[in-house]
Design a protein around this nucleic acid. Sequence first.
DNA 1: CCAGAGTTGTGCCT
DNA 2: AGGCACAACTCTGG
Length: 567
Amino acid sequence: MRRLSSSVCSPSSHRLNPVTSMATGSNSLIWFRKGLRVHDNPALEHASKASSGSMYPVFVIDPRYMEPDPSAFSPGSSRAGVNRIRFLLESLKDLDSGLKKLGSRLLVLRGEPGEVLVRCLREWKVKRLCFEYDTDPYYQALDFKVKEYASSVGVEVFSPVSHTLFNPTDIIQKNGGKAPLSYQSFLKIAGEPSCAESELVMSYSSLPPVGDVGSIGVSEVPKLEELGYREDEQDEWTPFRGGESEALKRLNNSISDKAWVANFEKPKGDPSAFLKPATTVLSPYLKDVKKHTSPPVSLLGQLLWREFFYTTAFGTRNFDKMKGNPICKQIPWKEDHDMLAAWRDGKTGYPWIDAIMVQLLKWGWMHHLTRHSVACFLTRGDLFIHWEQGRDVFERLLIDSDWAINNGNWMWLSCSSFFYQALPTPYVSIVSLLMLHILRRCFSGGGFQYNRIYSPVSFGKKYDPEGKYIRHFLPVLKDMPKQYIYEPWTAPLSVQTKAKCIVGKDYPKPMVMHDAASKECKRKMGEAYALNKKMNGNIGDDDLKDLRRKLETDEESNIRNQRPKLN
DNA sequence: CCAGAGTTGTGCCT
DNA sequence: AGGCACAACTCTGG
């Protein structure tokens, strides 16, 4: 197998590579977090080289993510819906059986990961600590503490970059200390994504034995119930199973379907095709399993977008907030908990939007264009609610939720950040004419402008005029005739009665009228953009408050002026 | 200053 | 299905 690689992701560029002592007989610890895989795992490979010692494979169940929260809006913890937790447990189970086949096993511990790790290092006399480098702020802070302790007691730390193909630190350094703000400039700086020959570590004949665990409490991978969740908490579960084996199966299926690969064009996938999804549905697994074959350019392009978001996220202060985020437009979003809850719970009265939100709730996954649709609706398109609040809902419910990509996309979709583009000449020079043709088609078209708003009615209708997708996720509308299914409030009462779905009783009335709401949103975005320009990005809380007040006053008077005169 | 470009808009025409 | 008008932003490059 050939491996996607580049000059900056070869093993020599792994950050923190202090291979100091190769003392035999010393114990090593491999700390699993995101990369829950046996193959293509440099941290595991390094840990296993402790030839005559023991290797402790560890996963720490972090209460911050896993503690059940009965007050959350759906089953799960405060930060993760139950689908995500289940997906993680399935991935751990698969990892455990992969390790067991090689004479090892996964040791599952619970508690604050930093404290747990320190206890393990001490108790098991670990000389070498290995874990995948992670750019998320939570892990940056956690890993800093762990590394500090390790170096104070002389434990060797090996923390390779293997979650991304490129090393974000290298790219930011090459760009003069700042993250590139456009995809094209990212490509320019990152260099050629070459498909270098480099053998994968696909199989070990065996792994070092697990040593005595002493007084440390370790367990097998727990069941959902053992973490305090109930199997019957949800009536429909995600059809996607977690784990490296499943991911490799999907990868092989996708790649071996030649016709599918040849025709792959990301923007053209049918977002309403839910029985056979139009994308690879690899993203939840890509969190854990990196791609290693040489993909077609269109797929490669998708992977590079991931790299781009990771780099930008790592190089930007307060990337997950509007305030204090240098690349984020300051916009006076509306504070409205009821509207947010209606959107979140699939009760907006727009079947297309609601079906998508129900799919998210039940499956923890939906097509990326449908993500665009609901994100646009919540923010700049209709409700004018803060992207951070939508981001939180996605982060909790998506089984493929990813800190960098989720925040980046929400800023993008809400038109809070522009990632300006340049000509792709340096990149184009390295690809064949055929690839160039595909690239041109993939990369043509406009970027996000706040006047380009997804319609909650026509966007879905274009792909699914029968409304099959809506009927599946919103059974209450399953007998609504197709000419009304995207706008059931327009159906005559007799039709609603016959379909056993009275709008306002069985299914909600639309919470806003899209034409008026989107027009209002455009106006607000225009004013907010103008203020951002005028202030050159230096907008304080007071400026934002003033603008919010002005926008609301204008909105009221607009509504008043639209009212028919009484005399 | 203007023209051109930007990963994935809508509506209407043929 | 493909072309075009619509409305319209902000940057780059000349």
